[in-house]
Design a protein around this nucleic acid. Structure first.
Lengths: 195, 195
DNA sequence: ACCTTGGTGTTTACATCGCTTACATAGCGT
DNA sequence: ACGCTATGTAAGCGATGTAAACACCAAGGT
C-alpha cells in the first residue's frame, strides 16, 4: 500500500506481503513453495530470505497465524460452554476450521513447532488452555489434565480423519452432525459402577 | 529371491526391493525420496517408474502396508475388549504405533488415499470396522456409528497431538499413562439426566 | 535358428525447488 | 557529500520428480 509510486526496488513491507501471499496460496490449494510466494509478491526468488531464515520459518509464522485464527473462531462461539452439547459445538467449529483451511491446518499441526523463538508455541499453549478450561468447566471434579487432552484429541482426531477422507462425508452438514454425534455419544456413556 | 546370480541387469524383484528399501528409510528417519530409494536399491533413479506410476503410488503402497501392520498390532492385543480399560489399552497400542513409526504413520493418514485401485482403502475400512466392533462391544445399545468415530478419533487425535509435540511427554511410559488417563476420563463421565 | 514382442532397467534431459554467496540499490544519519 | 545499513537482485549449486528415447534380456511362435 502506502504510495504507489514507491521505489520499485524496495518493497515497503515485504514480510507482510509474503505472509499474505503465502496464506492465499495455501487457501487456494496451490502447492506451497518459497519461490512461488516470492513470484506472487513480485519479488526475486531469494528476497524472502531477508525476512525468513528458512522455508520452515515462513511456515511457522503461517502456522502461528492459523493457531490464532482457530482460537478466535472458538472464542467467537460465545461464552463459556456449560453443557456437553456446548462442547460438541466447539468440536464442530474445530473440525470446520480444519476442513475450510485444510492446508493451513496441516501446516499448523503436521510438524513439530520449533520450540525456541516462536509465538507459535504460545498460541498452541493458549489453544490448549482454552480447551482445557472448557472441558473442566463442563465436567468439574474430574482429572482435569486428562479430560483436556481427551477433549482436544477427540476434536483433533475427528478433524484429521475427515481431512484425510478416513471418515467420508459428502456435505458440511453431514460432518457437523457426525461431530455432534461423536461428542454426544462418548460424553453420554453411563458406566456401570465398576472401577 | 530366486537365483542369487541373477542377470545383474534385471533386478529380479525390484518392486518388492523398492518397498522394503523405502520402508527402511522411513523407519530410519531419513527423508523419503524416490531417488534415494532407487539408490538404496542399487538401481537407476527412474527405474521405480516401471513399478509405480508416481511417487504417490509408492507412498500409497507403503501406507497400505502400514495400515495392515497397525491392524495386526491391534489384533495382537488379545481378544475382544470388554471394559473401558481394555479400550484404553487399544488406544495405547495405537499411539505407540504412531510414535514408533512416525513417518509411516503420517504417510498413512497425512494424505487422502486415492480411492480407485487400492487395497489401501480396504485396509483403512478394516481398521475402522475393527475399532467400531470394539467400541460397540464394550458399549452396546448406543449410537454405534458415532461411538466408533469417537473412539477412533480419540486415539487418532492423541497420536497426532503427541507426534507433533502438542502434548509433550518425555518417556513412553508417560505417553501410555496419558492415553490411559484420557480414555478413562472421558469414558467415566457420569452425565446428569439432561438431554 | 531367426525374429518379434514385451517387460525391465538405463540414459539423458528438463523444470523446479531450497539455499548460499557475492553484488547492487536506496535512504538514513552524520 | 559520504558512508552505513537494510533490503533486494543475480547467479549458481545440489537435489528432486518426471518424461522420452534407448538398451538389454527372456520367451515364443514360425
Amino acid at each position: 500500500m502506502s504510495t504507489t509510486t514507491k521505489s520499485a526496488y524496495h518493497h515497503g513491507d515485504l514480510r507482510a506481503a509474503l505472509l499474505t501471499s503465502a496464506m492465499e496460496m495455501l487457501e487456494g490449494g496451490e502447492t506451497f513453495s518459497l519461490r512461488a510466494v516470492a513470484r506472487r509478491a513480485g519479488v526475486s526468488a531469494t528476497a524472502p530470505y531477508r525476512h525468513f531464515e528458512d522455508r520452515e520459518a515462513l511456515e511457522s509464522a503461517l502456522a502461528a497465524e492459523g493457531l490464532q485464527d482457530l482460537k478466535a473462531d472458538l472464542a467467537a462461539a460465545g461464552s463459556v460452554p456449560a453443557t456437553p452439547a456446548d462442547l460438541g459445538e466447539l468440536g464442530v467449529i474445530y473440525v470446520r476450521f480444519a476442513l475450510r483451511r485444510p492446508a493451513l491446518f496441516k501446516l499448523m499441526f503436521g510438524q513439530e513447532c520449533d520450540p525456541e523463538n516462536d509465538q507459535r508455541v504460545i498460541a498452541a499453549a493458549e489453544l490448549h488452555d482454552m480447551l482445557a478450561f472448557a472441558m473442566n468447566h463442563v465436567f468439574p471434579g474430574h482429572d482435569g489434565e486428562a479430560l483436556a487432552a481427551a477433549g482436544w484429541a477427540l476434536a483433533h482426531g475427528l478433524a484429521f480423519l475427515h481431512l484425510d477422507g478416513k471418515l467420508k462425508a459428502t456435505s458440511q452438514e453431514e460432518v457437523d452432525a457426525r461431530v455432534r454425534a461423536a461428542f454426544a455419544a462418548i460424553l453420554s456413556i453411563q458406566t456401570s459402577p465398576a472401577s
